[in-house]
């Protein structure tokens, strides 16, 4: 549209009786510059709320797994979030593998959620995918929900022994962070 107006404008430039198109063009460009200027100033104001460089620089966390006995679980902090590390029992692994994936709300096999050959270690971000509470189930005395895993007391989500959502309002399985085995008994999260 502005291209049209400029063409028009040059054609009628000598015609002093008809300054309309030139004036319109100037209004439009002035308003456009103003809008772009305002937006380019608004962005820093919004973006300053995003994580700052020092927050982003939070390093990865190394965890020594050797003291965790079978059936025990520990919680470590990574990026300000709790990470659940569970040394699963054979029964728990079996339960997790026996589930028919088609029945799940967020279908994932148990194998997708652990490292091959290290099925006994389940590592997950311990934050309920509903509204961010920390589910119970880390301690032996905790309520573990109806699927022998974790139970979120806030709004009643039940997770199974693979951390998959089975019942309740949460939409997704407990998240598995990126981690790797540095040695057989040490993992590096992040």
């Amino acid at each position: 549209m502005s291209a049209d107006t400029t063409v028009d404008n040059s054609a009628t430039d000598d015609n002093h009786g008809d300054g309309e198109t030139r004036r319109d063009f100037l209004y439009l460009t002035a308003a456009a510059f103003g809008a772009v200027g305002a937006a380019s100033f608004a962005w820093p104001l919004v973006d300053q709320m995003n994580p700052a460089a020092d927050t982003l620089a939070l390093s990865s966390t190394e965890v020594d797994l050797s003291p965790i006995e079978e059936g025990q679980a520990i919680t470590v902090v990574w990026r300000g979030k709790p990470v659940f590390i569970r040394h699963r029992t054979a029964k728990e692994i079996e339960e997790a593998q026996a589930v028919d994936v088609a029945d799940l709300r967020d279908p994932e096999t148990d194998g997708d959620r652990v490292h091959e050959g290290q099925e006994k270690w389940l590592v997950m971000v311990g934050i309920c995918t509903h509204l961010g509470c920390v589910p119970l189930g880390q301690k032996n005395t905790d309520v573990k929900g109806e699927y022998d895993g974790w139970f979120c007391p806030c709004h009643g989500s039940h997770y199974d022994s693979s951390g998959r959502i089975r019942k309740g309002p949460a939409p997704k399985n407990l998240g598995v962070p990126e981690y790797s085995f540095v040695t057989d008994t040490t993992i590096k999260i992040g």
Partner: peptide, 23 residues
């Protein structure tokens, strides 16, 4: 975070980090 597509980015923006914290 329930908002499709942009939900998680909005939550990070609100928090200024990866969880509720000093920012």
């Amino acid at each position: 975070s329930a908002i499709p597509l942009v939900g998680d980015s909005i939550v990070t923006l609100l928090w200024g980090g990866f969880s509720i914290d000093n920012p």
